[in-house]
């Protein structure tokens, strides 16, 4: 999957300048970077939630995209209904509820969930419908370690079984090392590094990336 170069500015400030890049089908690509690096902006533009400068399409129309925003909204209904409203089917809903330990919460009102529970529901909901490219913006940031492990396993299985491409935005180096096949590293709105996770996350080229690894990897 190839994407053309694009920029995204707010007012006169360019918060993201991407060169053209590619994602390998069926693989997990982690997007790493510090707060404010432009990770969410990349996710939003690829998902079509905000237009790139000039308004051009970055993702071709034939590619179906699923997108989980960093702050996902719990619709005013129960947890199960939040999954069913996507039209993905009852069986799929029950599978996902149980895979993320949500079965006991299925009939609760979604707005009353705790932060970690809401994150699990949002992830389950995002996995309800098939798509070619799935973009998840820090899906586990609010989860405890146990749920995070469940979520990462589920994501890897889903990608392997369905062949969908996953763009996983995270600020956790550990998470990227555990789950990703490839990695992008963003720094102050620039793409500094892209390639196989084994290289980017262990032997990066750029000093900024090394610094990030030293900081988070210890």
């Amino acid at each position: 999957m190839n994407f053309p170069a694009f920029q995204k500015s707010y007012g006169r400030r360019t918060v993201l300048a991407m060169p053209d890049f590619a994602l390998e089908p069926g693989r997990v690509c982690a997007v790493l970077g510090a707060n404010g690096a432009g990770k969410s902006t990349l996710a939003k533009v690829l998902a079509g939630a905000v237009p790139a400068d000039g308004g051009q399409r970055v993702v071709p129309a034939r590619v179906t995209v699923g997108y989980l925003p960093q702050r996902s909204f719990p619709f005013r209904m129960t947890v199960r209904q939040n999954l069913l409203v996507t039209g993905g089917g009852r069986q799929r809903a029950e599978e996902l509820l149980s895979a993320l330990g949500l079965s006991p919460l299925a009939d609760r009102r979604a707005a009353l969930l705790s932060g970690g529970e809401l994150a699990r529901m949002s992830l389950a909901r995002a996995l309800m419908r098939p798509c070619r490219l799935l973009i998840l913006d820090e899906p586990t940031a609010a989860m405890d370690m146990e749920s995070t492990v469940l979520a990462e396993g589920l994501l890897q299985r889903t990608c392997r079984e369905t062949g969908r491409t996953l763009l996983l935005v995270t600020h956790s180096l550990q998470q990227a090392r555990r789950t990703a096949d490839d990695a992008l590293f963003l720094h102050r709105g620039r793409l500094l590094e892209q390639g196989p996770a084994g290289r980017v996350l262990y032997q990066p080229d750029r000093p900024e990336t090394k610094e990030f690894l030293d900081f988070y990897g210890s």
């Binding site: 998902a47 079509g48 939630a49 179906t64 995209v65 699923g66 997108y67 989980l68 925003p69 702050r71 996902s72 909204f73 619709f75 005013r76 209904m77 409203v85 996507t86 039209g87 909901r125 995002a126 309800m128 419908r129 798509c131 973009i135």
Partner: peptide, 25 residues
């Protein structure tokens, strides 16, 4: 937020509208 979430789930515009009305009941 409703729109961003609903569109991310690939929901058609009429469903996004109904979800919005549901939030406003």
């Amino acid at each position: 937020p409703v729109r961003e979430t609903a569109r991310g789930l690939g929901l058609p515009p009429w469903k996004v509208f109904l979800l919005l009305v549901n939030e406003c009941l």
